[in-house]
Simulated scan of single mutants.
Amino acid sequence: KLLRKIGLSGRSFVPMLIGFGCSVPAIMSTRTLSSERDRKMTILLTPFMSCSAKLPIYSLIISVFFPRQYQALVMVGLYIFGIICAIIYALILKSTKFKGEPVPFVMELPNYRLPSAKSVVHLIWEKAKGFIEKAFTIIFVASIIIWFLQTFDAKFNVAESPEQSLLAMIGSLVAPIFAPLGFGDWRVSTALITGFTAKESVVSTLTVLMGGNAELVSTLFTPFTAAVFLVFTLLYTPCVAAIATVKREMGGTKAAVATVIIQCAIAWCVAFLIHAVGLAFGLA
């Protein structure tokens, strides 16, 4: 009943629950939804569920900037804030693009039997094989691109330092976009770009660019801008494997590109709003 109030069917609960683990299988699991409307709407809302790949980002930033007694509260707060943003976005979608009522929740219970070990192993292998073939190839290609940009400079010579690499150059061009959010340093922009490949890359990139000392991240943020950064990483575009899955499930590049743009726009607007409020109250 709660999901119906925001325009979803009860079956949408499972994909979004899986989204807290990984967005790729969560998006694929929307195939169980009988209504095309409910399926597409669930796919668009799933990235708001904070996947486990973002945990390294949360752990690093929270451990550096927040007192120990508040760290668990901040972590839980991020998950709850993502759910709240998903609810607001769902209400917007319900009244605009996805007007109409969701399909009533009807669950057909089959005869349950204990499966054989052979059939379980076969099923796991088939699912894992499909994931590796479709998702890993995308991640592999994207990783090569990031490695190339991080290794060579503008003259295609091996960069003597990360600051001279093509990736740093791109990060410097993108940095002004994040300046209104309170973190306009090119190293932060570079980390967010690599995070498009895999969210864990944000932490590894920051560590590399800070000379291998993760604690130096404290020089890039204040406690307040660190909180804004956490909100942005919570909401901005999911990894390239998830986007590839969106493309396949929603039937086209247009939907995948739209998802990236919308997620980034929402993340920027929410982070900007929080930063503006912080400035007004003298928190920044």
Rank of each mutant, 00 (worst) to 15 (best):
T197W: 01
I61Q: 10
M49V: 06
S9N: 10
V121D: 00
I243V: 14
L230W: 08
P115T: 12
Y89F: 15
L45K: 11
P67W: 09
D185P: 01
T245F: 05
M210I: 00
S172Q: 15
A26Q: 05
P56Q: 13
S143E: 09
V217C: 07
H275V: 02
V76E: 10
A265Y: 02
C264Y: 03
G195I: 03
I43D: 10
M41P: 01
I87M: 12
I146R: 03
I132T: 15
G195L: 02
V106Q: 13
M16I: 11
M107H: 15
A226N: 05
T96D: 13
V121N: 02
E200K: 03
C269H: 06
S201H: 01
G10N: 03
L123S: 15
A284N: 14
A90Q: 13
T222F: 11
S29H: 07
I261H: 04
I92T: 10
P67N: 14
P176N: 05
F221G: 06
T194F: 00
R31V: 11
I177L: 14
I43T: 00
A214Q: 01
S161Y: 08
S116D: 07
A271M: 10
F148P: 06
I61V: 15
A284W: 11
K97A: 13
F98Y: 15
V228W: 01
C239I: 09
M107C: 12
T219Q: 09
S29L: 00
G77I: 05
R39A: 04
V24Q: 08
V208N: 02
Q71I: 02
T245S: 13
I92R: 11
G130E: 06
I138R: 10
V76K: 09
M49D: 07
N157I: 04
G252W: 08
T237V: 14
T259V: 07
F156E: 03
I27F: 08
A271W: 09
L8V: 09
S63R: 13
T96H: 11
V257C: 01
V76S: 11
T245C: 14
S29R: 03
V260W: 03
I138W: 05
E36Y: 11
I193L: 14
G195W: 00
L45H: 07
V64E: 15
T96P: 09
I170P: 03
L173K: 13
G252I: 02
L78E: 06
A90C: 14
I243S: 04
L73Q: 15
I146S: 09
I243N: 05
W147Q: 06
R248I: 02
S201D: 02
A271V: 09
F152E: 13
A168Y: 05
V174K: 05
V76G: 10
A154V: 08
F98Q: 12
G212N: 05
K254W: 03
S165H: 04
